[in-house]
Amino acid sequence: MGTTNNLSAVDILIVEDNPKDAELTLRALRKNNLANNVLIAEDGEEALDFFFYRNKYKGRCPDSPPKVVLLDLKLPKVSGLEVLREVKSNSKIKNIPVVVVTSSREEPDMIEAYNMGVNSYVVKPVDFEQFMNAMSSLGLYWLLVNDTPR
């Protein structure tokens, strides 16, 4: 798997508890050669550990924040919306682009996410081809097209 170790710079943080979805996402990114610095957090707590240098991410390189975070909403321990709130309410990291990538198209979730300052909201298609296209587009856009303040 082309994921980076815990302490090197991370371009894409994928917060996803479902390993099959994670694999499919990675496959899409890899096809576009975007999977070099990808980190997968398996639940919300791990994601927060990453953002706030806790536990196994204590010694993480502080200088390069991820270029995009792909955040699932339905997560064990700490939910995706909870993670989003923590990130967007912290002035140091609130500029990190966060894209919600979720299976359900639930209006309340979407409204809440946007209210908290999510940068994009994507519903994962069931169809494989559509799923691959969506993930490729996401990776290409946020890594190559988009720019963020340093």
Binding site: D21, S103, V126, F128
Partner: peptide, 17 residues
């Protein structure tokens, strides 16, 4: 919505793979 779609997506995607 969430839980049924995920395995469904896996079925579809991995069949495609």
């Amino acid at each position: 919505s969430h839980d049924l779609r995920a395995p469904l997506r896996a079925i579809h995607s991995f069949t495609s793979i």
